[in-house]
């Protein structure tokens, strides 16, 4: 059963719990990586990611809509074709950004599916659409950072 089909058999509370669980998992992964990280810069980068995911988790818990009003920027797809690095303590900043952008992309897709699933329920549709947009915005920021630093082709 894929995610879209799963939604049909789930209560709203379960869906929210699933999303919160997803964000929590990301927080735990990044915390693990941060604790194992061999240098201060990677620790900082993981900390930024933990804070970002925590904001998402809180938004889900409070079902906050008003935070997110801007449309998402264009999907640059910079990291879409890159290999997914394995989460570890000695990742380079380049690998950390790829991993995080790919996670944001996957999570954006999940929220987009949920928004589509609730197409006729305005409030839910808006909420999940905004969560999807928010994830895409983060993906965009990460990919911009990636492009600025790793794709200058100088």
């Amino acid at each position: 059963m894929n995610l879209k089909e799963q939604f049909n058999s789930m209560e709203m509370d379960d869906i929210l719990l699933m999303c919160i669980h997803q964000e929590q998992q990301a927080i735990e992964l990044y915390t693990l990586a941060k604790n194992q990280a061999k240098n201060e810069n990677s620790r900082q980068k993981f900390q930024e990611l933990i804070e970002m995911e925590t904001v998402h988790k809180v938004a889900l818990q409070n079902f906050e809509i008003e935070h997110y009003i801007d449309l998402p920027p264009a999907d640059l797809k910079v990291t879409d074709y890159l290999m997914e690095p394995v989460l570890s303590g000695n990742m380079t900043t380049q690998e950390i950004i790829i991993l995080a952008a790919k996670r944001e992309d996957k999570t954006a897709k999940m929220y987009q599916d949920l928004a589509d699933h609730f197409a006729t329920e305005k409030e839910l549709n808006t909420f999940f659409q905004m969560m999807a947009d928010e994830e895409l915005r983060h993906k965009h920021n990460l990919e911009t950072e990636y492009e600025n630093e790793f794709l200058q082709e100088g």
Partner: peptide, 20 residues
Amino acid sequence: VGNGSNPLISQTTPEIETNK
């Protein structure tokens, strides 16, 4: 597509601050 810096010095001399 570009070059980065070698981590050898920052690994062996943590007193020297590096950026991310």
